[in-house]
Design a protein around this nucleic acid. Structure first.
Length: 725
DNA sequence: TTCATGCGGATTTTT
DNA sequence: TCCGCATGAA
């Protein structure tokens, strides 16, 4: 079959490039998944690469699945071959390596993977031990700080403490890490961090994996963080066949440690790398692309891409200013109803996007009031629900009795009279016996006789409850490998009378039980693979994966959640200063630029029609306040728009607003000094500009001054006056 | 162990 | 405004 026949020339160029470091800058809707899958097929067919030698990394399981199925279609008869490619998320692939090489780690291969909530629970515990007040040292902030440190590959001993908070973090981090090991657990970030450490510190392992995976492909490369970048470098070795695809313009996870500058770093680290741009868009109308480019071109120091399509210009973008958020929601409903009525779109073709989850509320209320169905993405996550986490915690405890976080979660769930005092005593006694509390309980169940000292540690009631718990747990752990997974879950539910505990007869109660049953359903699919794989799955999936497109209803989702998706009709609401860009991001040029990219991502989700909505006044934290149009709106050329952004404002105000907003300051730089300009400097006198380039958020100019020589200056600092351009 | 109360904080969340 | 928590009373 001819692999190249349905690729455009840029895509062909990327797919057929000789093996080596290759950077593909792929605009939205430019077919990057297609390029990745074709590249894999091409390497197999033209270079005789074996699928087992290839590793393809994505950021989401969804993307991995998508690639896997597209690859299967593509390779057709080579199905077995396609299956040989190691395809998965960074985290999943690292978890696999860690389990395989567990003998070099401080945990066993049964280690648990701790999520955010588990991490916070450990942080809380550490704070307690260090006698620090969780009120003054917010658990979430500390956890986030530890997470960023890990993403930057900073170990507890290396953590610099220049402020009081950093000192707190430093201490908590150390204790936290010890606890993780004691729990026989790693957290999300550890999956990457340990993988890097393994490859860094063990020459034989590094060699082994380099030989094993000579071909590496990476999707969404702009979203890699430092740990992931370093991991790739370690895996890739000196003569890498490293094919990375990304789009710095769609980098919206900087706040999670992703660093689009890795794209630049890649070019510096691989000076011979090939750079290929994918600019033809197969998704949107030219009007939408023009709007998107107008927004993103204000972001300097970027590799420009000219997005184009052969789809034609399509309808103009509609801007609407609503009175308040209720009115905004009403406009959304009316718009969707109208489109449905005229037959230009199905409800399911429409997506409503917003900056923050809180904005979904007025929208949901409007949908409910209008008695219209909708799909809400994100918000309350299935695997974050209490009842789901409870059952998983039981399973995790069975798989890994050292998992103290899970134990403490379920020890008194359902309530069995084991309060704080009993827990403290249990932890103390277990520590004395040099066992984890879970193991201690199992041992307690196995030998009826207790040391007198230990028996004295508990009240009679607590003792009875503990041994009952131990006797329940013991057979589950002892026979965990023979017991079918669903049977195990049923035993847990029966043994704990769990339904009675969560289903209180209310509607919520029924829903909670339904969630448990849904989890049981997922477990059913894992009956072959078993408990360990099931736990791996639930630890590493996200809820995005649960997004089904079954019903024909509009989708409500955040701009972040929208990345990677597309819809015929997109309505972006809340285009107000303080909402998009978010209040919190306005101060920092870097964050403001990310808000801009977020808007860009939103715009480029639209295939046919785009609606932009804002509200004249908006209720924020209770108080209602006037809001101003988002500064990003002023970047849209008016000939693409239907509806006037100026809205109720007077012309004068609008002009003022436009001027004062031209700033996203440092970052909106396009070089203001041109080569050949004559300039005047108070100290150096007159000179001629030799070159100018934007570096980060400043302009760096090289000037030849008469009688002084060549100087390199920063435009923001040097007091330069232009004499003639 | 559970409920009531008060306080502080309030983005985004691929794994 | 409203949610989650930490804390204190029953």
């Amino acid at each position: 079959m001819d692999l190249l026949k349905d690729l455009n020339s840029q895509q062909q160029h990327a797919v057929t490039a000789p093996p080596g470091p290759i950077l593909v800058l792929a605009g939205p809707g430019s077919g990057k998944t297609r390029v990745l899958t074709h590249r894999i097929a091409y390497l197999i067919q033209q270079f005789g690469a074996r699928p087992e030698e290839m590793i393809a990394v994505t950021f989401t399981n969804k993307a991995a699945r998508e690639m896997s199925s597209r690859l299967r279609d593509l390779l057709g008869g080579l199905e077995a071959g396609a299956a040989g490619v190691s395809l998965g998320t960074f985290h999943a692939l690292c978890a696999r390596i860690l389990r395989r090489e567990a003998d070099r780690l401080p945990v066993t291969r049964d280690f648990a993977i701790f999520d955010d909530a588990d991490q916070q629970s450990l942080v809380r515990q550490a704070l307690k031990e260090l006698n620090l007040d969780p009120r003054q040292n917010p658990v979430g902030s500390i956890q986030a700080a530890i997470s960023s440190a890990k993403n930057e590959l900073i170990l507890p001993t290396e953590y610099g403490a220049s402020t009081y908070f950093a000192e707190v973090v430093r201490r908590v981090y150390a204790v936290y890490q010890n606890h993780l090991t004691a729990n026989n657990a790693v957290d999300f970030d550890d999956l990457l961090l340990w993988a890097v450490r393994l490859l860094r510190e063990h020459d034989d392992l590094r060699e082994k994996y380099r030989r094993r995976y000579p071909h590496i492909l990476v999707d969404e490369f702009q979203d890699t963080n430092t740990a992931q970048y370093v991991l790739l470098r370690l895996l890739a070795g000196e003569q890498p066949d490293l094919f990375v695809v990304g789009d710095p313009d769609q980098s919206i996870y900087g706040w999670r440690g992703a660093d689009y500058r890795n794209v630049k770093r890649f070019q510096e680290d691989h000076p011979k790398s090939q750079i290929i741009l994918l600019e033809q868009n197969y998704r949107s109308t030219q009007t939408i692309l023009d709007a998107a480019m107008a927004v993103i071109d204000r972001h300097p120091a970027r590799q420009k891409k000219r997005l184009f399509t052969d789809r034609g210009s399509g309808p103009r973008i509609v801007f609407h200013e609503a009175y308040d958020e209720t009115d905004e929601a009403r406009f959304v409903i009316e718009t969707i109803s109208l489109l449905t009525l005229e037959g230009s779109a199905n409800p399911g073709d429409c997506a409503v996007m917003y900056r923050a989850n809180a904005q979904s509320r007025p929208l949901e209320e409007a949908f409910l009031k209008a008695n219209l169905p909708y799909r809400l993405v994100g918000a309350q996550r299935f695997y974050g629900r209490r009842e789901v986490k409870d059952v998983i915690a039981y399973l995790r405890l069975i798989q890994n009795p050292a998992d103290q976080v899970s134990l403490l979660r379920v020890l008194n769930t359902p309530a069995r009279g084991l309060g704080e005092k009993s827990v403290e005593a249990l932890l103390r006694v277990a520590a004395e016996a040099m066992l984890s509390p879970g193991e201690w309980l199992v041992r307690l169940a196995r030998q009826s006789d207790l040391g007198p000292a230990q028996a004295g540690a508990f009240t009679g009631k607590a003792m009875a409850a503990l041994s009952a718990f131990g006797r329940m747990l013991e057979p589950w752990t002892a026979r965990r490998d023979e017991t079918p997974l669903v049977d195990l879950i049923d035993q847990i539910l029966a043994g704990t009378a769990y339904q009675a505990w969560i289903d209180d007869g209310t509607e919520e109660g029924a829903e909670r039980w339904a969630n448990v049953m849904e989890l049981r359903g997922v477990a059913q699919e894992y009956s072959e693979l078993g408990l360990a794989m099931f736990l791996e799955h639930v630890a590493l999936v996200s809820d995005q994966d649960t997004l089904t497109d079954a019903q024909n209803a509009p989708t409500l989702l955040t701009l972040h959640a929208a990345k990677g998706l597309e819809f015929p009709v997109v309505i972006i609401v809340g285009l107000d200063e303080g909402v998009l860009p978010h209040q919190r991001s306005i101060e920092s040029a870097e964050e403001l630029a990310e808000e801009r990219r977020l808007f860009y991502v939103g715009i480029t989700r639209a295939k046919d029609q785009l609606f932009l909505v804002r509200a004249f006044r908006r209720r924020l934290f209770g108080a209602s306040a006037m809001s101003e149009p988002s500064r990003f709106l002023y970047d849209l050329p008016s000939d693409l728009l239907e509806g006037d952004i100026v809205g109720s404002q007077t012309r004068e105000q609008a002009v003022y607003a436009r001027q004062t907003r031209w700033e996203d300051k440092p970052l909106t730089l396009s070089p203001s000094f041109q080569v050949g300009m004559r300039v005047q400097h108070p100290a150096f006198g007159e000179g001629i500009v030799l070159s100018s380039r934007i570096d980060h958020d400043d302009e760096e100019i090289t000037i030849a001054f008469e009688g002084v020589g060549v100087k390199r200056l920063a435009a923001s600092l040097a007091p330069l006056r232009v004499l003639e351009g």
